[in-house]
Write a protein that binds this DNA or RNA. Sequence first.
DNA 1: TGCAGCTTCCTAAAGGCTTTAGGCAAACCG
DNA 2: CGGTTTGCCTAAAGCCTTTAGGAAGCTGCA
Lengths: 189, 189
Amino acid sequence: MVRAGLTTERLVRAGAELADEVGFEQVTVSALARRFDVKVASLYSHLKNSQDLKTRIALLALAELADRAAEALAGRSGKDALGAFADVYRDYALAHPGRYTAARYPLDPGTAAASAGPRHAQLTRAILRGYDLPEPDQTHAVRLLGSVFHGYVSLETAGGFAHSAPDSQESWTRIVDALDSLLRNWPTR
Amino acid sequence: MVRAGLTTERLVRAGAELADEVGFEQVTVSALARRFDVKVASLYSHLKNSQDLKTRIALLALAELADRAAEALAGRSGKDALGAFADVYRDYALAHPGRYTAARYPLDPGTAAASAGPRHAQLTRAILRGYDLPEPDQTHAVRLLGSVFHGYVSLETAGGFAHSAPDSQESWTRIVDALDSLLRNWPTR
DNA sequence: TGCAGCTTCCTAAAGGCTTTAGGCAAACCG
DNA sequence: CGGTTTGCCTAAAGCCTTTAGGAAGCTGCA
């Protein structure tokens, strides 16, 4: 009996690839076992259950995304930072649809707090340093930016803007322009 | 053998209620059969399969949402319309989380085109009449508004803003203010 | 009223995914 | 090299989906 060399780490990475290939919804413990040519039950030594697998893939995706965002923000500010950050999200979602879906898998509060989620908020806040908003407007703006990026990419990957003019890239560019303009002229009470 | 009086219509409505109670993901043909105290196979005379059920719930939710949005927009314009429209989305999502999730269930292009989806775009465009944007900016703005509403509500129902100050309602109000301001000062090329 | 035919719901069965329990063999470690 | 740990296996139960085929209820027409 030759051992397959399974580890939680390898399983999660393979699960992420599987998600990108067949969709996050189709990621099952069974499919993963098939991919490693191993019996299903064997995976349960490395994963608590199916939800555990999905959660771990979600955490991987969140971390990858935060890493890329952090790198993109380095040395940039203002609109330049805003655009780079936006592109990281969109590009990641288009290149890794399964992982991106995973990144929105509901986490329980404890797990969420320990995830890269807070780093995302932190990075978004860093962008706003170039715009000089007072609290609590800064928080509102963080939520707005998160909503736009997340919402746009969501709708786009769901095929929302696929077959209509103007093309999605152009809307994306113009929306980033509009957000930049909004942040520079943020309406305070 | 007393008949249960199943119809596709009743099943879909019950499915929508079930979605709100236990989550859209947990809506299964089996659960629905239990709810009607009927054997699972019986439902297959009324539903093609599990995906058919989910699709129909999605269509129901999209239609309900469009109806409410249309009603909210009647007799309003400008920021008043924008705020009313935004609230319809958010209130619907908070009151009917399962249905709201269903509304984002991926539809094949043909089904999507025949759904209330286009009505949503139409309604969003109606709001913009009060802001007088030229094409193609109007389309960009439609996409922006869709993204913000969808994205915000998504993040909120996922618990994103749940346990942090300021509270979500306030951000929502201020974001609508910000969007109004942005649309009044839309940056044209 | 009676029965023909359609509809509704049923039983049966096969196949897939999840999860737990318990066992054997490989790999590591002293 | 023997003992322990660990990794993967078989077995089995439970739930969900979907199809096939059968019987009971309902409807309409003679």
